[in-house]
Each structure stands twice: as C-alpha cells, then as structure tokens.
Simulated scan of single mutants.
Amino acid sequence: MEKLFGLDSLLEPEEIEIRSTVRKFASDRIRPHVAQWFEEGTLPARDLAKELGSLGVLGMHLEGYDCAGMSATAYGLACLELEAVDSGIRSLVSVQGSLAMFALHRWGSEEQKQTWLPPMARGEAIGCFGLTEPDFGSNPAGMRTNAKRDGDDWILNGTKMWITNGSIADVAVVWAQTDEGIRGFVVPTDTLGFSAPEIKKKVSLRASVTSELVLDGVRLPASAMLPTAQGLRGPLSCLNEARFGIVFGSIGAARDCLETAVEYSMSREVFDKPLAGYQLTQAKIADMMLEVGKGHLLAYQLGRLKDSGGLTPEQVSTGKLNNVREAIDVARTCRTILGANGITLEYPVMRHANNLESVLTYEGTTEMHQLTIGRAMTGEAAFR
C-alpha cells in the first residue's frame, strides 16, 4: 500500500516511530495468542493493561498526570496498529483512555484526577464508562439510571449495558439522571451496591471484557460527582474521543485482512497457478486497496484537524461511518479470497469481520452517523 499511496510521507518521524513501536508490541505480545483468546472468550486484560501502560498508550493523548501527552494523530496510529491485531485490544485502550480517563481529565476535579489518572495511565487501575442502558443506546437522554441526594451524599440506582472493561474495572464513570439534569459520577467498583456481571455467549469482540453494570443503592459522597459536566455535553464529548480512535482502528483491521488475503492469494494454487494470477482476484485486491488507502488518508486528515483544534463531531462521524463500513466490506471480500480457510481462526479475517460487526454499531450506529452528516449537509435534524 505504501508504494501506491505514499502514506509515510504524511507522517512525522516521531509518529512513524510510535507506530512501529506499537506494531512490534502487538505483533510480538498479542498476535500469537489472540486467536486462542477469541476462541476461549477470554482476555488477560489486567496483565495487558500494565504492559500497555508501560508502553505509554493509555491516555497517551492527554497531558499531565503521568500521561504521555502525544498528538492525536500518534494516538490514532496506536489504535490502528492495535486493531490490526484485534478490535478487542483497541477497545480496551479506547475505553481506558478516551472514555474513562478523558472524562476524568476533561470534567473531573483535581482530586479525582490526582487519585485516578496516574494509576490508570500506568495500567495499574482499569476504568470503564457507564452510559448505554438496556433500552437506551442511541438515545442516551432517556436513561433511567438516577442519582438522588440523601443529605450530602448521592444514591445511585440503575443498570448499564454493553460496558467494556466493566467486570475488571477499579473505577466506573457512570452517567445518571438527577434533578439538575444528567451528571457524571466517579464510582469505585468496590462500593457497596455496585456489581458488574460479565456478558457471555458473544460471537463478536470475544477477546474483550463486556459487562453489565448494576447500581443498587450505591451511596457516594458529594465529591464523587464530576463537577463541570452537566447534561449530555459531558458524555458525548467522551464518545467523540472514542470514535476518533475507531476511525483509525477500523482501517487497521481492514489492512490486516487485505495483507492476509494478498499473501494467501500468492501462495494458494488453483488450476496450476497462484490465485493471485487471476483477473477476478486482482480486481478484488485493487478495489480493496483503494478503500483501505482512502481510509488511511481520511484518518490522517482528521488527525491533523484534531491536532490543530479544528475537528468537529460531524467530521468524526464522517470518518467513523466511512472507515468502519468499508473495513467490514473489505473483511468479507477477503474471506472470499481465502475460501474455506477464511472461516477458521488460523487466519484473522473472519475474526476481524465478526469484531467489526460490533464496531459498526457501537459508539454510534451507521444510521445515527448518517443522520449527523445529513443534518450537517441540510441543516435539518431528522433524528425523530
């Protein structure tokens, strides 16, 4: 792909070095084991979190509090390389850094930041982000989780669903309805009344911890509230951070599928010549190369916009919609090149395709991003 798009010419030497470091870690530490983790539905998340913390990728785009303070583009490249191995690994990093840590960094008190951000950056503490509920995903304003005052304390009751890292988290950032509107709360997971049963029987994101959060009379001090986040602006700002990582990450999964398919087509013989020697195969490869290359260009452009402070939510929606949609199409097409071998875990293609089915709908469904873009283009909101 580099010979056709010259992508490295768009990156700074430091960014290329960061990309290479994360790619080597993912290749050496994760790739040899991830198919087994996927098959077994397990992930050594705590061990990986500490290693990823040592690598500097947890909250790497945040400043201070032991965070690396790298550029948004560098963070995106790290997401790309992690998702090239598995979407579940990128999800671990995204939820830690772009949801839980970003919420604390952007909206938290100094005490909350000092308490949680340094150990989270080191991977010694794991965070999760409780917004989605069983009946409220695309419409978070309707959430039923509530927080009521009891003297100087808050009492939280409710349920959150599809929460990455929930069962292993040390701290949860939970959003709830209050008399003052939607507010965020920092909930240590050892608080009485908090539980996080893990969701099983998944056929996607199996190398990832997905949980329900149950808050049954969870009592928190007044200091647990995120002081500067009021209304949906708080959680939506965090989601925008996570979507940015997906713009890069999803195209990493597509790249891995394409590289696998190209290599396979050159070694697999059909009618006494390599599969790669057939016009139909080359047409598939050429079309996929265009989409993967364009996806990289779009991600890099959004990274530069974010680094300059000019990235809008509508632009992030454009990147998420395009790159995930094209990535899942690339994965499916690559599966056809691999034939029956494409459905096994010996190759990463079907695993990526299954994972991308989740990526397609989390952090905003295709339909929600289409409507966001439609509103930007027409000035008309068609969400209802």
Rank of each mutant, 00 (worst) to 15 (best):
D329A: 13
V186K: 04
S109Y: 01
R219E: 11
E357N: 08
Q112V: 13
F102E: 04
A74Y: 02
G88E: 09
K201P: 01
E12T: 11
W116K: 09
G339V: 10
E2I: 15
E291L: 06
I16L: 15
E367R: 15
L356E: 03
Q112E: 11
T361L: 13
M143T: 05
R19K: 15
L213S: 03
E346P: 04
C238E: 06
G309D: 08
L298R: 05
A261I: 11
L258T: 14
L338I: 09
R332S: 13
K201E: 14
T365V: 08
D190Y: 10
M289H: 04
D47I: 05
I199N: 03
R183W: 03
V324K: 02
V218Y: 00
L311V: 11
E259C: 13
N157W: 00
T132P: 04
A224H: 09
M266H: 13
G53H: 05
T336Q: 08
V262G: 04
G252L: 07
H61M: 10
E63S: 15
I199A: 04
G158D: 00
R335P: 06
H369K: 11
G295C: 13
S109F: 02
I30H: 00
I163S: 02
N146W: 00
L371P: 03
T365C: 09
A276V: 05
R219D: 06
T333Y: 00
A45R: 06
A169M: 08
V171K: 04
P235K: 08
G310T: 08
